[in-house]
Design a protein around this nucleic acid. Structure first.
Length: 304
DNA sequence: CGCCAGGTTAGAG
DNA sequence: CTCTAACATGGC
């Protein structure tokens, strides 16, 4: 008998598993999760053990159902699995205040109904949230996903079952032991290789940790992250949005955000920094969701 | 070929 | 404090 777990969904009238899957399906180089037949599968840690779970809609809208596919015949701590999936899909969020706000915002007006029920898909793993932005800096997304895939497949824990390769994002301890010469042949720039290894060392040595970050306010956490090599304002806010889940996190330097605003408003070119300040200055506690919904809009070819 | 890409850093002015 | 070159290579 397979272990099945009910995952509560807060504000379920504003939740769409389909919308979340659409976003999660954005890259064919994804290797941390897979989507088939409307179900989501990935490996995660429960009780410190790697398990492969399948996530599907429950028989009630207010729940998702997780099934442990492997290892079979064992029971794992429900709380760990619930915590991971709740964070990942932001199942504890309430979207109504954001939806109400979008109606009055010139950039966001209409976006709530376009992607209704989409949650801000996050990253329950701090090391992933800090290193994925480093990997993706200043290169096109397609190449960024290629580098990420290589990084995960070379250094991440791996299980193969039923012909599918499941991975965990690499552990800091593994990356901390690397030299730049092991990353540059994989087409990481020298500076990116240095930043990744240094970030891994900071986490392996406890100079950066979930506990440390959790004790800080948004501005304190932003300052702490920006003090680290390879993390600027964009990367810091990316992690604060996807991992720490500060609602005011705003990666204002993001080119995707610029383009999304441009297309939504029909501007002839990307808005300049002063215009961006103007468009985003009233977002405040809606900034993270505003950014995420605008990123989502870039996945629809008709919007660019 | 040229320009841009889910930026950041170090160094100059 | 602000401005800029360098980074390093894929995608179009």
């Amino acid at each position: 008998m397979r272990q099945k777990i009910k995952i509560p969904v807060n504000d379920s009238v504003n939740f769409s598993f389909e919308e979340c899957l659409h976003f999660l399906n954005r890259s064919d180089k994804e290797c941390l999760h897979y989507i088939t037949d409307g179900k989501l599968r990935r490996m995660l840690l429960a009780g410190g053990e790697p398990v492969i779970v399948e996530i599907a809609p429950g028989d009630m809208p207010a729940y998702l159902e997780a099934t442990v596919l492997a290892p079979s015949g064992e029971v794992f701590p429900e709380a760990d699995i619930i915590r991971f999936i709740t964070h990942w899909l932001h199942l504890d969020a309430s979207l109504q205040p954001f939806y109400d706000y979008t109606l009055t915002d010139p950039v966001l007006n209409g976006i709530a109904s376009e992607y209704h029920g989409l949650r801000l898909v996050g990253m329950p793993d701090l090391f992933e949230a800090l290193t994925w932005p480093i990997i993706g800096q200043q290169i096109n997304l397609s190449f960024a996903y290629t580098l990420r895939q290589r990084f995960i497949q070379h250094f991440g824990f791996h299980i193969s079952t039923d012909g599918t390769d499941y991975y965990l994002y690499p552990q800091p301890e593994v990356i901390a032991a690397l030299t730049t010469e092991q990353l540059t042949p994989m087409q990481f720039s020298r500076s990116k290789a240095l930043y990744l290894i240094e970030m891994a060392k900071a986490m392996a040595e406890g100079r950066m940790s979930a506990e440390l970050l959790a004790a800080l306010s948004y501005e304190e956490a932003r300052a702490k992250l920006v003090s680290m090599k390879g993390i600027g304002n964009w990367s810091a806010n990316y992690a604060l949005m996807k991992y720490s889940r500060f609602p005011q996190a705003l990666p204002l330097e993001d080119v995707g955000l610029h383009n999304a605003i441009r297309y939504r408003l029909g501007l002839p070119a990307k808005p300049d920094p002063a215009a961006l300040q103007e468009y985003t200055k009233s977002w405040k506690e809606h900034a993270a969701y505003a950014t995420f919904y605008l990123w989502r809009s870039l996945l629809s070819p008709t919007n660019n």
